[in-house]
């Protein structure tokens, strides 16, 4: 509908008016952009997952009350949301979607990728999750159950992927590298070591 140049101009116009009215301060804008570009992201969630794989007590706390367990690792909710972590096993595969918009666990995964916010994913993750998983190259055994979790503003989900076979000797720090953003959304598995 509008080109990126037109949108950029609309954003600049709004920014200039809000700055003039004293409703926004330039450093606050820079601070928010820096937060989302550099400090929030799946590197945080990967540490949570690696801890859960390494520490059974932490894993139990994470599955019982993810909000508190994640705060325990220093990642505060950005929008005051509650978190639920669901565990993938050989029998149950979980995937996360936000059919209404783009709700995503910002503190642990950052902003969602474009595909997560796109109509095809929002539509089909709900009705054909196995088809979506196949599109991501993730084959799920016919006898395994697939569970779809529809996020909302107040409650956001993250998947605890299965710890990959062959990773038994790795320590927590090495495990972090196996945990991808997509594996915490549930559309793929964690990487093999």
């Amino acid at each position: 509908m509008t080109s990126d140049n037109d949108v950029a101009l609309r954003v600049r116009a709004l920014e200039s008016l809000l700055l003039e009215k004293g409703l926004v301060e330039a450093p606050a804008i820079d601070e928010i952009i820096d937060l989302f570009e550099n400090r929030l992201g799946p590197q945080n969630g990967a540490k949570v997952i690696a801890r859960a794989w390494s520490d059974p007590d932490f894993k139990a706390r994470l599955l019982a009350n993810a909000t508190d367990a994640i705060v325990e690792m220093g990642y505060e909710a950005v929008q005051g949301e509650d978190m639920v972590v669901v565990e993938n096993t050989a029998q149950v595969h979980n995937i996360v979607v936000c059919t209404l918009c783009s709700c995503f666990p910002w503190a642990t995964l950052g902003l969602p990728p474009v595909w997560y916010k796109s109509a095809p994913y929002r539509a089909r993750a709900a009705s054909d999750p196995r088809g979506v998983l196949a599109e991501f190259g993730t084959d799920i055994a016919a006898e395994a159950e697939v569970r779809v979790w529809d996020s909302n503003a107040e409650l956001r989900y993250m998947v605890l992927p299965e710890r990959p076979a062959g990773s038994e000797s790795l320590d927590e720090e090495a495990l972090v590298a196996l945990v991808t953003r997509d594996s915490m959304i549930g559309v793929t598995r964690a990487l093999n070591p």
Binding site: D4, V7, A8, V11, R12, L14, E15, L18, L23, V24, A28, I29, I32, I33, F36, E37, G41, G110, L111, P113, V114, W115, S118, A119, P120, Y121, A123, R124, V132, E135, F136
Partner: peptide, 27 residues
Amino acid sequence: YGPIIREEDEPVFHHEWEGKALALART
């Protein structure tokens, strides 16, 4: 709606204005 289009190594924001738009909404 068709297939899911994915982008490898996707940046957080594709244009400077996207980050600004998010920041102005949040302020």
